[in-house]
């Protein structure tokens, strides 16, 4: 499998480590009054889609960047690769 890194171009999947669903970017606010429930869901509740799935990959043997890879779980086709930093900034995070 080849991941087309936004900065470095196509790189072998062996250089990457998989973490999980990209929803991990949206860490709940510990100060929220429903923090216990929100963190429960954040840790344990996942969709299991047959189709496009957004997931976090780490380029460990590369530039050490976190990527959001959109992959089709039925075909393994990778339709989009973004820097997780850009995704987080677009969601209003400060980094």
């Amino acid at each position: 499998m080849i991941i087309d890194h936004p900065l470095l171009g196509p790189r072998d999947a062996a250089e990457f480590v998989y973490l999980g669903d990209a929803c991990l970017i949206d860490r709940p606010d510990p100060g929220d009054e429903n923090a216990a429930r929100l963190f429960h869901d954040y840790l344990h509740i996942r969709d299991n889609p047959a189709g496009e799935h957004r997931e976090l990959w780490f380029h460990e043997h590369g530039d050490r960047s976190w990527l959001v890879v959109t992959r089709n779980t039925l075909t393994h086709e990778i339709v989009r690769v973004e820097l997780a930093r850009d995704v987080a900034l677009a969601r209003g995070r400060d980094r």
Binding site: L8, G9, P10, R11, D12, A14, E15, H61, G62, D63
Partner: peptide
């Protein structure tokens, strides 16, 4: 080396971290 070292892709002055035989 899993990198493409062709002149057009990896010309002089290019640098990359990768893994060879499981070694970084």
């Amino acid at each position: 080396c899993p990198l493409d070292l062709d002149d057009r892709v990896f010309p002089q002055d290019r640098v990359a971290r990768t893994a060879m035989e499981h070694l970084s």
